[in-house]
């Protein structure tokens, strides 16, 4: 019998830094990283996805219009191209994303193993009426996600970039209570 690959290595979950608007892109903190990323590809455009990941982490979990414009200028891309990419991929947020981001997998294996109950619990605790919204207290953004690749440990969720598997509604409640 094989050991199960871990869902993730345990990490402390810190609340997000408040959104920062840098005067220009890349901000000093990201300069070295961005240059390292650019060196990996024959075109500047190819650095767009990885740099958007960095920008989003820097910006407090979402890519503000200012950051978006900064990235476009930095990579010599049209703002329309960057916006098109940003809105195509489900991991990027274009609106403030709360202090914590919670994803609930909704796809078949998780659906069979209790995802609907988790979703209801998540929305309830976050005080949201629907997914894709931040609750009134600004604590949680709850997102419906498609298969997270943890189906053998369904149902699966993600909290602030950390996967959790075999989650029960009670377990989810505890995880969410642990978030400021």
């Amino acid at each position: 019998m094989n050991p199960r690959a871990p869902a993730a290595e345990p990490k402390d979950v810190a609340p997000r830094a408040p959104a920062v608007v840098p005067a220009s892109f890349p901000p000093a903190e990201l300069k070295a990283t961005c240059e390292k990323i650019l060196a990996r590809y024959p075109t500047k455009m190819a650095a767009l996805l990885p740099i958007l990941h960095e920008a989003q982490a820097f910006g407090g979990g979402w890519v503000s219009p200012e950051l978006e414009a900064g990235v476009a200028a930095y990579l010599d891309l049209s703002p329309a191209h960057v916006h098109g990419v940003l809105t195509f991929y489900s991991m990027y947020n274009t609106k403030p994303a709360g202090r914590h981001e919670l994803w609930v997998c909704r796809t078949l294996s998780c659906w069979r193993r209790g995802a609907p109950e988790l979703r209801a619990k998540a929305l309830d605790k976050a005080g949201c009426t629907r997914t894709g919204e931040v609750g009134e207290d600004g604590r949680f953004l709850v997102k419906d996600m498609e298969c997270l690749g943890l189906c053998e440990q369904a149902p699966a969720i993600w909290l602030d970039g950390v996967a959790h598997a075999n989650v029960t509604p009670e377990g989810l409640e505890q995880l969410m209570d642990g978030c400021e």
């Binding site: 690959a5 871990p6 796809t107 078949l108 294996s109 498609e146 298969c147 690749g149 943890l150 189906c151």
Partner: peptide, 16 residues
């Protein structure tokens, strides 16, 4: 990319 639902085999190879 392994985004096919129900599929998690490549993750084992990459992680382990």
């Amino acid at each position: 990319d392994e985004s096919e639902p129900g599929t998690f085999k490549d993750r084992y190879l990459m992680e382990l």
